[in-house]
Design a protein around this nucleic acid. Structure first.
Length: 568
RNA sequence: CGGGGCAUGGCGCAGUCUGGUAGCGCAUCUGCUUUGGGAGCAGAGGGUCGGCGGUUCGAAUCCGUCUGCCCCGACCA
């Protein structure tokens, strides 16, 4: 493609809305443009990347005998009522009505539709197992779209659904998909990790997530290299600490702390570390207006774990400041476990802190040098927090490391949740109807692209992995307008590369070299070939890989051979 | 949905406090020069200052209201 035929509108300045690195680069390189909150147009350059990702996914899915189909984006409410999710799914499901006031939704996922297809199309166990998939636009009315295409409302997803006669077959299908996903993410040249996960609203039994490791990730993943364990920090059960409670060394002291309401403020006000402070959170109780949960200052409450306590109302609800004050008589910043007149639970790790700092249950006051047993009785212990780096791995005693991840894939063993609700049965070898077992498998296609950029960029721009680069090669002629030789050589080279199957950009714009170099770097084309007078005399051109800092002179006539060698 | 911020040419911003001729950089177009890392000079086009209502002789600026977008928290591929 000649750049005179392909308008690439690269931006020097960063659009002020873009926060994440990948979002900024996608806008600057002209891959996408925002239409409204969470809605993006894929421009021609971005579209090429999108198509490459789709192609890889299709090839690997087809290899595994999965069958491609396409289901409607708009789905009738009846199916969702039948599965129970019309009520369950909540505000994220965008509901709409047609001219006859019939109810529909925009598909955030397609379990209902595919189960409906399966119950009509699949009659016999002889037809199983089957895996249907599609690559299609989904809509989820996210509360807060952000990071561009990373969390958009409209996005492209590859979703696959498998149908099985029994649990064993489901397991086989699940493991096959796990392998297929690994192949896909390997081909996409992503650094990723497979993580144990919660199945959330989709439901079912076991599920695993594929996370691309990146600083900007929204999920925190705990892992241990040695035993190969990895899980979302929210899903890891934690046990009572082996640490012994140390003997008190400080006197209990009441300290005036005016307006000091957060752990951060407290730490700088009285010069302690967060792990030496205990924080008190109030949630709604089952039979009481309030239950107090005590955590170490540096730890995070885990909602699912807290919700599992009998005394805590489900679903979990934090009290707002006025309710909290009503239940305790104290402002929220000054709550503490000592002399608190409501049910109290304490996280295991908070129970082994001695000489700690906590709210005094008196406005504008905290205690320092507080010790369990000496100054107050030990409350009931529980596992209340998210795992952090250094916690022991559940599968051994290795300390866990924590990394940020972007969820790009999720595989589920759904079981019979949908097939049962929607009566999807086949006849078995005795002619009896049997409810099918299902698996479902998603890949965030558009998110994969953002994730790839998060992992592959530098201060100049994107560095595409060869597998998904919009073009393989860019030719930059220097002073083409003035030199017939340059033009001629460039045209010849362009033709030769195209014929050899390389997707090539030729920058034939009348721009200064600096502009061309900057654009080439920004849009991240892997191989750069520069044609200039000085090297032409030797029959050479300059080769540079986007990832490398070095250029080298190579003979023009050997260029195809050289590109082949560089392909890795 | 709760908390915060922003809305002025395609993009990034100033001007708003203290009402009085709408401005800068980038981008775009024309011409000349320039051509190995986002050029220089000369010229040009492009804005009902998010919408509606109000105050005023006069509103980008003050008041009210609505809308959109972004950021921080609870959801997910």
């Amino acid at each position: 493609m000649r750049l005179t035929d392909l308008p690439i509108n690269t931006l020097k300045e960063v659009p002020s809305d873009a926060e994440a690195g990948s979002h900024q680069l996608m806008l600057r390189a002209g891959l996408i443009r925002q239409l409204a909150s969470g809605l993006y147009t894929w421009l021609p350059l971005g579209m090429r990347v999108l198509n490459k990702v789709k192609k890889i996914i299709r090839e690997e899915m087809n290899n595994a005998k999965a069958l491609e189909l396409t289901m409607p984006v708009v789905q009738p409410a009846e199916l969702w009522v039948e599965s129970g999710r019309w009520e369950e799914y909540g505000a994220e499901l965008l509901r709409l009505q047609d001219r006859h006031n019939r109810e529909y939704c925009l598909g955030p996922t397609h379990e209902e539709v595919i189960t409906d297809i399966a119950r009509h199309e699949l009659k016999s166990y002889r037809q199983l197992p089957v895996n249907y998939y599609q690559i299609q636009t989904k809509f989820r009315d996210e509360i807060r779209p952000r990071f561009g295409v990373m969390r958009a409302r409209e996005f492209v997803m590859k979703d696959a659904y498998s149908f099985h006669i029994d649990e064993n077959s489901l397991l086989e299908g699940y493991h096959l998909m796990k392998e297929v996903y690994s192949n896909i993410f390997n081909r996409l040249q992503l650094t990723y990790r497979i993580v144990q996960a919660d199945s959330g609203t989709i439901g079912g039994n076991k599920s695993e997530e594929f996370h691309v490791l990146a600083q900007s990730g929204e999920d925190a993943i705990a892992y241990s290299e040695k035993d190969g364990f990895a899980a979302n920090i929210e899903t890891i059960p934690l046990h009572p600490s082996n640490t012994k409670l140390a003997e008190p060394t400080e006197e209990l002291k009441l300290v005036e702390t005016p307006q000091v309401k957060t752990i951060k403020e407290l730490c700088s006000f009285i010069k302690v570390k967060p792990e030496q402070c205990l924080k008190t959170l109030l949630v709604q109780g089952t039979d009481t207006p309030a239950v107090a949960l005590i955590l170490r200052g540096d730890h995070e409450l885990n909602g699912v774990k807290a919700q599992n306590l009998k005394a805590v109302a489900s679903p979990l609800r934090m009290l707002n400041t006025s309710e909290a004050k009503g239940a305790t008589g104290v402002e929220t910043g000054f709550l503490g476990p000592k002399d608190l007149k409501i049910p109290v639970y304490i996280d295991y790790s908070a129970a082994v802190v001695s000489d700690f700092v906590c709210g005094a249950n008196i406005n504008d006051h905290h205690y320092t040098g507080v010790n369990w047993k000496r100054d107050l009785p030990m409350p009931e212990l529980a596992d209340l927090r998210n795992a952090v780096a250094g916690d022991p791995s559940p599968s051994g005693n290795e300390p866990l490391s924590v990394a940020k991840g972007i969820e790009v894939g999720h595989i589920f063993q759904l079981g019979q949740k949908y097939s049962q609700a929607m009566k999807a049965t086949v006849l078995d070898d005795e002619g009896k109807p049997r409810t099918m077992f299902m698996g479902c498998y998603g890949i965030g296609v558009t998110r994969v692209i953002a994730a790839s950029i998060e992992q592959n960029h530098d201060e100049k721009g994107i560095i595409w992995p060869s597998a998904i680069a919009p073009y393989d090669v860019i030719i930059i002629p220097i002073n083409m307008d003035k030199s017939y030789r340059i033009r001629e050589t460039t045209e010849e080279l362009y033709k030769k590369l195209q014929e050899s199957g390389y997707e090539t950009i030729m920058d034939d714009r009348s721009q200064r070299p600096g502009v061309k170099f900057a654009d080439a770097d920004l849009i991240g084309i892997p191989h750069r070939l520069v044609i200039a007078e000085k090297s032409l005399d030797q029959g050479q051109l300059e080769y540079k890989h986007r990832r490398s800092n070095e250029t080298e002179m190579v003979p023009i006539k050997n260029i195809i051979k050289i590109l082949k060698e560089k392909q890795l």
